[in-house]
Simulated assay, not measured.
Amino acid sequence: MAILVGGATGVVIGLAVAYGVGLRQRRAKARAERRAAEAGLRAALAPAADLLAACLAAGAGPRGAADAVGRSVDGTVGVRLRRVAAELRLGAEPSAAWQRFGELPGARDLTRCMERAGISGVPAVEGVARIAAGLRAAAHRTAAERARRAAVLVTFPLAACFLPAFLVIGVAPVLIGLAGELMAHN
């Protein structure tokens, strides 16, 4: 910028542009990291929901299922489930205990189902199994979408290499030949 604008003004503008570009890159990186973390949580939620359904089918209540699955699942999902089980064991209201678990991306429906089961005692096996199937399907869709996106991104470098080569080797000689013939006839 100092070359284009000149002097101290160019230096100031250059520094401002550099700061803006750096800020934008940091924000984009933070958004990408946040999306990746959310995708990881969503992916971890599907097997946890399957395990919750299995525990409920075996006769465990919502608290026992949350405790058992929380101990067998690593990461944020496991920690949150163990916390829910501990709060329920200490006498917390099911709606309050499960609400914090529902803050996880994709866990809202599962939270409502488990909360209802804890409050009313209604069996939640079918609902949790249905939600687990939906979470698995969403994880498969996300994986397929990433694979399609990766396939598209892989073709860009190929196009950047082969398109100019095609133009130079295939199209340019034809155009040069046609131009030569047109000039010879005039």
Rank of each mutant, 00 (worst) to 15 (best):
A2E: 13
I3H: 09
L4H: 00
G6R: 02
G7K: 00
G10M: 15
G14Y: 11
V17F: 06
Y19P: 05
G20I: 10
V21L: 13
V21I: 14
V21G: 02
G22I: 11
L23C: 13
L23N: 10
L23H: 12
R24F: 11
R24T: 07
R27W: 10
E33L: 06
R34M: 02
R34T: 01
R34L: 03
R34H: 05
R35D: 13
E38Y: 05
L45M: 11
A46W: 14
A46D: 11
A49H: 04
A49R: 02
D50T: 03
L52W: 05
C55L: 10
C55R: 13
A57C: 03
A58W: 15
A58E: 15
P62M: 05
P62L: 04
P62Q: 05
R63I: 00
R63C: 00
A65D: 08
A66P: 04
D67M: 06
D67A: 08
D67V: 02
A68T: 08
V69W: 08
V73H: 09
T76V: 11
V79S: 08
R80N: 07
V84L: 02
E87T: 00
R89T: 00
A96I: 02
A97L: 03
Q99W: 13
G102H: 06
G102V: 01
E103W: 12
E103T: 10
L104I: 04
A107V: 08
L110Q: 09
R112T: 10
C113A: 13
C113R: 10
A117L: 04
G118V: 00
P123Q: 09
P123F: 04
E126T: 02
E126D: 11
G127T: 00
G127Y: 06
V128W: 10
I131C: 01
I131F: 08
L135Q: 13
R136F: 12
A137S: 14
A138Q: 13
R141F: 10
T142I: 03
E145F: 05
F156D: 09
L158P: 11
A159M: 15
A160G: 01
F162K: 13
L163T: 00
P164R: 06
P164T: 02
L167K: 01
L167V: 08
V168E: 14
V171H: 07
V171C: 04
A172C: 13
P173N: 06
V174D: 10
L175H: 06
L175G: 02
I176N: 09
L178T: 01
E181F: 08
E181S: 07
H185C: 07
N186F: 15
